[in-house]
Nucleic acid binder design. Structure first.
Lengths: 124, 124
DNA sequence: AACCGTAATGCATGAGGGAATATAACGCAA
DNA sequence: TTGCGTTATATTCCCTCATGCATTACGGTT
């Protein structure tokens, strides 16, 4: 090492790390968080609450409650549901739903960067 | 209103708000978060885990577990405990404990500012 | 008209975590 | 030596929340 410059700290694995969670709060409490946004994506992928819930090991009842909560708090519903008919019905993501997903991921990604940056400022 | 300039949005109470929590992660999981740092401050104030727990409506058992978890994960203990003797003993905050409190609040305050700023960027 | 798979909803069950309770160990003071 | 209040720890209770199960409504298909 030249000139005797100070070495970087050997922070192989830092002992402490800043962690956190964020969510978007609505009129009734949580509007959308990590789990709910995943659920929306699964609904988009599978076309029904039933299949979406099953794909992520969540009970239908719970999934339905989450979707209902989001729909009630959104200016315009995040999904449109139809019952009966071919295939028994199903649930489709609305443009508003897509927008919610995008907004959450944008905030989420930014937040991850924030956590990384702040972790390094921890003096412990 | 002059010149027909566009008005500010009437965001009396914004429909959506970004919320979140942060904590400092250690070798065994959570090292310190909001509740734990309050507990440390109460210990500093009251001089015992018993009184600190009581002051914040927490069971002694739970408080003890939290303190134990922090002590185990800290390079040097955040509190020093003594049993028996005048008054039955007690628990005092160490300089390391003070440092942990300061580090958490610093991160916490910064995070509150971050949430405020990001809330305004939510386009929903 | 009968069938099918989904949404919608109520009720009972189960798991996890904190609270409440009960003891024991400790060490200074009286 | 006895008393006291705290730390330390196990056991039991309780509350919350998600799951599981049952049932009904729905509306295209056949």
């Amino acid at each position: 090492m030249h000139y005797g410059f100070p070495m970087n700290k050997p922070t192989a694995t830092p002992r402490y790390q800043l962690r956190g969670r964020i969510w978007i709060e609505g009129p009734e409490g949580t509007f959308v968080g990590y789990g709910r946004v995943i659920l929306l994506e699964r609904i988009r992928e599978h076309g029904s609450i039933t299949a979406a819930a099953k794909s992520m090991d969540m009970s239908y009842r719970h999934a339905w409650k989450l979707v209902d909560s989001m729909n009630r708090q959104s200016r315009t519903p995040v999904v449109s549901k139809s019952t009966g008919g071919r295939g028994g019905g199903g649930t489709q993501l609305t443009p508003a739903g897509e927008q919610v997903i995008a907004a959450f991921w944008a905030a989420y990604e930014d937040f991850q960067g924030y956590l990384d940056a702040q972790s390094n400022k921890l003096d412990l």
